[in-house]
Design a protein around this nucleic acid. Sequence first.
DNA 1: TCGCAGATTGCCT
DNA 2: GGCAATCTGCGAA
Length: 188
Amino acid sequence: MIKIKILLKKFYMNDTKQVAKDLLGKTLVRKIGTQILSGVITETEAYKGENDPASHASRKKTERNKIMFSEVGIAYVYFTYGMHYCFNVVAKKKNDKAGAVLIRAIQPQQGINHMIKNRKTDIISNLTNGPGKLTQAMQITLKQYNHDLTKKSSLFIIDGEKPNKIIAKPRVGIKIGVDKLWNFSYKI
DNA sequence: TCGCAGATTGCCT
DNA sequence: GGCAATCTGCGAA
């Protein structure tokens, strides 16, 4: 019997890069009616505020990115490239203005059949190995924008094993700020 | 196997 | 008006 322990606000009230690393090995849980979808987080990226030109929050506070300046432990979902959603968790130190961790990849655990139906592919390794893919597999949309992930509801993150080998790489898909090794993943 | 362009919407300049 | 924290399919080698 695995004890279910939801990560609390305190977990996210920390340096954005640190939380990005800490989230590796944790489990993302999505409830759709009685159906439960879950997966272990295997890749994340840190996006900070004013000193990070690649971050949405680097320029100024807008209607879209305002929750990166808001409370930690909530979901920041945005729509991009005309067809993809990306799922982030707001995480920052108390004195930081803004920050969020982009969840880039998970490893499916529960509800794999449901994910296959959502993704219209039966290749397991291709189900959730990208930010746009995992939101599609888990049916995460703008409805989850501003969702509180520290409460047991339709979407939350539970504690898990900390991986021993974390790899830092440049962030993917951006043109500026690529010198920063803020993409984190690990070998299974 | 690899690289590139198309899809397609909302945000920022 | 241009481009984005992406994915997929197609064509070339």
